[in-house]
């Protein structure tokens, strides 16, 4: 993992941990926070990092928009395929985040 930045590592580990924690369940306010982070913020952040966006405001906007858009696409696809469950959505969003981090890590390792 030489050359892989700490933010990428932290993002990937957070995705795994928060997916598990959300699936296991937490008290209501914590569950809401954990679910919002793993479903929207982490995937949005992991994907927005690919865009080379340097403007902080646009980056923040893309994190939200990408997170919500990808979650919408994933949820909708699962409904059309009749395989939807919120747990499956959490796992899928966690996997998307981890894959994005792995791809980013490869980028970082080669540069």
């Amino acid at each position: 993992m030489n050359g892989v930045s700490r933010p990428t590592l932290a993002l990937g580990i957070s995705a795994v941990v928060l997916s598990l924690v959300t699936l296991l369940g937490l008290p209501t306010p914590l569950q809401a926070v954990a679910a919002a982070v793993i479903l929207v913020l982490l995937p949005g952040h992991a994907l927005a990092r690919f865009t080379q966006v340097s403007d902080v405001a646009l980056r923040a906007l893309l994190v939200l928009a990408l997170g919500l858009a990808v979650l919408t696409a994933v949820s909708m696809a699962m409904f059309y395929l009749a395989v939807w469950s919120w747990q499956a959505c959490v796992i899928t969003m966690g996997v998307i985040t981890v894959l994005a981090c792995l791809a980013r890590a490869r980028q970082e390792a080669t540069t």
């Binding site: 679910a35 919002a36 479903l39 909708m76 939807w84 919120w86």
Partner: peptide, 17 residues
């Protein structure tokens, strides 16, 4: 046009809000 409702269903179930 189920996109938003699919999102809402997932968010409501996962967050417990």
């Amino acid at each position: 046009w189920p996109g938003f409702f699919a999102l809402l269903a997932t968010v409501l179930q996962a967050t417990g809000l």
